[in-house]
Design a protein around this nucleic acid. Structure first.
Length: 511
RNA sequence: GGGCGUGUAGCUCAGCGGUAGAGCAGCGGACUUUUAAUCCGUUGGUCGAAGGUUCGAUUCCUUCCACGCUCACCA
């Protein structure tokens, strides 16, 4: 029993006890419905004509008790349906269960014929009725529902009971993931699973979560990306693989960031980043078409269309294109920082000193990214921030890399994979040096990965799609927490009673 | 981590220096085609937590906790 019992909850527990005293089980073991509520509606005419008995089950979401009869709505996974119970049409004990023991929220089973009421609503006229599972807690208020965001996220089960659009969003999410899986499988990609616990964390620049294995006596990291393992599989001879799974990053939480998030990561042998852009575009368009039957969407009042070819604009061109007045801005990755600062002075002043690529990235993220309603591919990123990507032969400071933007958010990221073990070794060393200078997000040296590359990895290109963000833009959800069933929250405070008096209750942590 | 905001009954919300209110839900009663069912009666609150100011604090102040928005870091 929980300590926060109130009178309503106590009353309901007492009802269950009284039911048991009458040999009525408040939590039955089994019940078989013949129809979902949707199936009743779909076959209404035939069911009314045949007077066939149906058995439906669901949660009572509204109850109108009228002395010797009652109307109520049940809701199952497929939707609501009205039921009607009157005293002379059901066994005596069934009516007693309804009148004495039933509350809104109970999960019940109803058997009977289908008819249409005087006001025209399809209804099951019960000839039998029982409670299948007693509900002990009252549901939120029936007009306004559950609004409090915190409660919605913490008690998602309640949110799902009362907010139909929430359920619909998660059904869409499931279909998006399923159709993506199916489409890629149709194209010949093999789904694989690689470790979540990494002795060395790599594949992205991010701070990891640390954990510990007792028997081995070693620390491990929750993966920040599966990239290095998937590319080991390319060395092993797989040519088209993908993984849809969780990544964990020990960083801030926001409307666009959850510490664990779902990524599609995919690799194709013999391709470069341009081929992967083609695939990214086709996959997202195809998923939208299969799940929603359209390519036109609205995200936060911005319309976008996945139908037409996605434009491809280089990083520096995007700055020229989207920053007003910057049409002729001649930025160069090999300019010294002071020169770059002088060139961009009319448009942007970086907050911190740093190398040229950081100044340009800062400007891009501040002035360009929010405007990228998209869909649009931004290409040719700084090599310095792409330690696992091949650089462009003609432009050694630039990586063959793209990011896809929709709704002002980075949705996907891909590149031509660096497969030269010697260069990869040097790039790792640069990362290690950055790490030693205090960059906690820089990568570690992964010698086994270098060893794998030394056996030879075919030319290949990889892709990562942020599934949560893709679902956000396709379902017009403004917060990532609206597309993650159980987003990470701080734990609830231990309740009342136990820690009333005394010095400090919960030690005030935080420095 | 910074800024802004919110926290009052199970739920949705008023109140704001003088000891707490509504609707829904609950409980008792009436009611055999209702659908925000209706009608009569009624219970329910350490007003997020701890300190302070005050004769008196839900209200003002401080600190803390949780959440939301936002900025910074990141996908």
């Amino acid at each position: 029993m929980l300590p926060d019992w109130n009178e309503i909850i106590r009353t309901r527990y007492q009802k269950a006890e009284r039911m048991r005293a009458e040999n009525i089980e408040p939590f039955v073991h089994r019940w078989n419905p013949t129809h979902s509520t949707q199936a009743v509606k779909a076959n209404a005419d035939a069911l009314i004509a045949s007077k066939e008995k149906v058995r439906v089950a669901g949660r009572i979401i509204a109850l109108r008790m009228m002395g010797k009869a009652a109307f109520f709505h049940i809701k199952d996974e497929t939707g609501p349906l009205q039921c009607y119970v009157k005293i002379d049409a059901v066994p005596e004990h069934a009516f007693r269960i309804l009148k004495t023991y039933t509350d809104v929220g109970d999960i019940v089973g109803v058997q009977g014929e289908v008819f249409v009421t005087r006001t025209g609503e399809l209804t099951v006229l019960a000839d039998n009725y029982e409670i299948l599972a007693k509900s002990m807690r009252p549901l939120p208020e029936k007009w306004h529902g559950l609004r409090d965001q915190e409660t919605r996220y913490r008690q998602r089960y309640v949110d799902l009971i009362v907010n139909d659009h929430v359920r619909a969003t998660f059904v869409k999410r499931s279909k998006i993931v399923a159709s993506m899986r199916q489409y890629l499988t149709e194209l010949g990609y093999l789904e694989v699973e690689t470790p979540m616990m990494h002795p060395i964390c790599g594949g992205a620049n991010a701070r990891p979560f640390k954990t510990h294995h007792n028997a081995l006596g070693i620390d491990l990291y929750l993966r920040i990306a599966p990239e290095l393992y998937l590319k080991r599989l390319m060395v092993g001879g797989f040519e088209k693989i993908f993984e849809i799974n969780r990544n964990f990053r020990n960083e801030g939480i926001s409307t666009r960031h959850n510490p664990e998030f779902t990524m599609l990561e995919l690799y194709t042998a013999y391709w470069d980043y341009r081929d992967t852009m083609d695939l990214t575009e086709k996959t997202i368009r195809e998923v939208a078409q299969r799940v929603f039957g359209t390519t036109k969407f609205v995200f936060e009042d911005q319309e976008f269309d996945l139908g037409p070819e996605f434009p491809r604009v280089t990083y520096l061109d995007a700055i020229r294109k989207f920053v007003p007045g910057a049409e002729h801005l001649d930025l160069r990755w090999d300019d010294p920082p002071e020169v770059t600062k002088k060139k961009i002075a009319p448009f942007f002043t970086p907050e911190f000193d740093g190398p040229t690529y950081q100044i340009i990235i800062d400007m891009f993220e501040t002035l360009v990214e929010p405007q990228l309603t998209g869909p649009i591919f931004i290409t040719e990123f700084a090599k310095a921030v792409s330690p696992l990507a091949k650089s462009k032969p003609a432009d050694p400071l630039v990586a063959e890399r793209f990011e896809l933007y929709i709704g002002g958010m980075e949705i996907a990221n891909g590149y031509s994979e660096l497969n030269d073990p010697q260069e990869q070794y040097l790039r790792f060393k640069e990362q290690v040096e950055a790490r030693e200078r205090g960059d906690e997000e820089a990568q570690q040296m992964d010698e086994d990965y270098i060893r794998a590359l030394e056996y030879g990895m075919p030319p290949a290109s990889g892709l990562g799609i942020g599934i949560d963000r893709l679902v956000m833009v396709l379902t017009n959800s403004p917060s990532i927490r609206d597309v993650i069933l159980f987003p990470l929250l701080k734990p609830e405070q231990p309740r009342g009673d136990e820690d009333e008096h005394g010095e400090e209750q919960a030690p005030a942590k935080e420095s």
